[in-house]
Nucleic acid binder design. Structure first.
Lengths: 343, 343
DNA sequence: TTGTACGCGTTATCAC
DNA sequence: GTGATAACGCGTACAA
């Protein structure tokens, strides 16, 4: 294990003339010992420099206090910040996290899950999109997903639909004559599709001229630049003279769009308003601060862990009552109005 | 542990009429069984739906295959990308990672380390700056630090000094008449200070007019904007007419600087050249791409894990030869010339 | 090639 | 309040 022999309960027992059991009780139920004996053991622990061994404890009582995480990557700010917030729940719940970055390789992620199960994780948080929820639901431990397809499993998602409405209404408020939503073509059963739906609903309800532009823009910065350049050209041609309100699916792309405009005009043209999504740092640090619909990543993370912990606790009861149906929590989005929508 | 009783080696042994030992060997040294018997066991595993239990294995053989990580946060791209790269070494080395984000709270991080030790991690990677290396060196497991004070422990660092030189030489190449380096006042024994040293050395060797501006700019975007605005004003006054080459300590700040200039002039003035540090995404995604000195985060991460694994393996030998002295690996930096240094 | 017996360090179940 | 003893599930000398 480590260097030499480790001090064990046996050593402490011999040293103090108690039994192993009593030493164990000192840790798990100290009140059952006399204060005096607690003192004696406490002293012995120091003198022997005892270090606890949680692996042995796990084997004996089955509680690892591990939660597994499968996350697509840590390159996107959204994911790294989410992991950050998940890790910080350690202070509240005490669970430790075993983290795998899956890179969206389905088979690889299956192996990760097996590995995690072998380490007896008590619950699993999934952010990656590869493995269908039907399959996840069959795993022998509680699962919570965040912002992904979640028909068969518990989940925590942003209120994307309201988010889409917020964006549309902001553009509406500033009297845009043409509302545009740029997004990538995606499956309606992932939560992010709600942004499209919310946008469309708002426009329909208020009878606004609008258009939905679904286009794959790729992942690289270059490819995004290229596709967005094309889109900007189209818009300039089609809607000359009209005040255009653009709602784009995330802040990274909003930033690219804004920079393209700045390089061309040295500023944001007055007939273009821009709203992003995520409230990621780039939205604040852009050449001018970008209006955006923010996800409350801290709350998403906290609720995900909290929901998971509830279920893990339920299983530890003598008569566990499993959920009859997956729970889906919704976290509100927050509108940040900044300089790209000041007319 | 999980739901019902788990299938164990004992069950498989009874099912197949082998002994537990043989089942164990099937996993750890399959060649010592006849092919036929391997088949029989393989079949039984499927029929019984056996799931391995690594916790028990750890207790028996002492090898957790866990590496602990203490990282300050995942908000800065540098750290999240580093964690990303560290996690991805799982494919190569097979070690699992227990991650704590420390937020630079010294006492908290000490507790994290104790917790990690209780889980019998075999090695520890430290990126946070709080705990002095003397203290880390006393821990009973191998340690590797990345880009922090490392007098008493093994470490992996970027070649910051050459990085500083690269930046200076790039500005020199473009005939800047005044070289400036903006950084925060930092302790010379952290690796990042090498950037300052490299810059100064280069200027001295080539007898270039230069100035070092050490100033605390704070962590928030607003405070950075404020301080950098002041600095820009000073420079404009002091060095009017001179072609100024600015090397700034990281890309985030370079981006702020660039945006300030763009907002003021609608472009990067011709008498200012700009070089950042890190090659973080913002340097590519800025209003115009920023020249920068890149750290090879993938290599830093790989070398850190690799260095750690070497030492962990050494400890597993019958006669371990501990290092007499900490090993310090240096990873070269890479210069990326982009639009902020095109005169 | 295969089996026996014991150890790993803790917790759980009974006793007293 | 305390102690003996048996789990927990697997690895490993040593023996056969």
């Amino acid at each position: 294990m480590t260097q030499k022999k480790n001090v064990t309960f046996d050593d402490i027992a011999k040293y103090t003339n108690f039994s192993k059991t009593t030493i164990s009780r000192y840790f798990n139920n100290p009140d059952s010992l006399t204060l005096q004996n607690q003192e004696i053991i406490a002293q012995a622990l120091i003198e022997l420099d005892y270090k606890e061994n949680k692996v042995a404890r796990i084997l004996a009582n089955g509680k690892t206090e591990f939660i597994g995480i499968i996350i697509p990557n840590l390159i996107l700010h959204y994911y790294s910040e989410m992991l950050n917030q998940i890790l910080s729940t350690y202070e509240t719940f005490g669970y430790k996290f075993l983290v795998f970055a899956g890179n969206e390789q389905e088979e690889t992620e299956r192996q990760y899950i097996q590995e995690l199960l072998a380490y007896k994780i008590e619950g699993l948080i999934i952010l990656s999109h590869t493995i269908p929820s039907e399959e996840l639901a069959k795993l022998p431990i509680p699962i919570v997903t965040i912002e992904r397809e979640d028909r068969q499993v518990c989940s925590v998602n942003s209120d994307n639909c309201t988010g889409g409405r917020q964006a549309a209404s902001l553009l509406h408020k500033h009297n845009c004559e043409m509302l545009l939503h740029i997004n990538s073509p995606s499956n309606p059963d992932i939560p992010a599709y709600g942004r499209v739906q919310g946008f469309l609903d708002y426009c329909a309800e208020h009878q606004l001229k609008h258009r939905l532009i679904l286009r794959e823009t790729g992942n690289s910065h270059e490819s995004m630049q290229m596709h967005l350049t094309n889109i900007l050209d189209e818009l300039a041609q089609l809607y000359t003279g009209l005040k255009k309100g653009i709602f784009i699916s995330n802040d990274t792309q909003a930033n690219v769009l804004l920079n393209l405009l700045y390089r061309k005009y040295g500023r944001l043209p007055e007939d273009i308003l821009l709203v992003g999504f995520d409230n990621s740092p780039v939205s604040r640090e852009a050449v001018i601060p970008i209006s955006t619909v923010g996800q409350q990543i801290d709350k998403l993370a906290y609720e995900a862990v909290s929901l998971l912990v509830e279920q893990m606790n339920e299983r530890k009861k003598r008569r566990p009552v499993p959920l009859t149906e997956p729970v889906h929590k919704i976290i509100p989005t927050v509108l940040y109005e900044r300089e790209t929508t000041r007319s």
